[in-house]
Amino acid sequence: MNILGLYNYWIVIILILIGFFIVIAHENLIKKLVGLTIFQTAVFFFYISVGKIKGATAPILDDRWQLYSNPLAHCLILTAIVVGISTTALGLALVVRIQEAYGSIEEDEIQTQDTQDQLECQLEAYGPRKQFLTKRI
C-alpha cells in the first residue's frame, strides 16, 4: 500500500527533523554540534534506504547471490560520513577555543559579551570626537 511502502522514509524524516530542531533551538554550542551530527546521519539513512532492494545482499560479488543492493549509494555515504566527521572535529576545536576566549559556550552569554565589545567600540568611536570638540571650545 502507498503509505506502508514509504514508512522507512518517514522515520528518517523524523530523525532529520529532530536533529535540525536541536541545531536551531539549543543555545549550547556543543549540543548544536550533536544535533548537526544527528541531522547528517539521518540523511545518510535516507541515502542507504534509497539503495536498499528487498531480498538483496551486500554488494560484494559472489556466485551465490544474484541481487545486490545499490553500491553507489553506499559509496556516496562513505564520503559523506567522512565529511561529517571532519566538520564535527573542526566544530569541536572551535568550541574549545570559544570556551577559552569567552569562558562560556552558551550562545546568549557569548552574544552579551560581543554586544559589550561593540558598545566599547562605539564609545571609543564617538568618545574622542567629544574630547576634540571640548578642546576646540
Binding site: 556543543i30 539503495g51 536498499k52 551486500a58 553506499h74 555515504i77 562513505l78 567522512v82 569541536l92
Partner: peptide, 26 residues
Amino acid sequence: LDAVDVAFTEASVGAGISTLLMLASL
C-alpha cells in the same frame, strides 16, 4: 540495509572517534 561498508565506517567513526572527540572537548 546491506550497507556493510557504511556500517563499518559508522561504527568506527561514530562510536569511536567522534564520541572520543566529544568527550575530550567536554
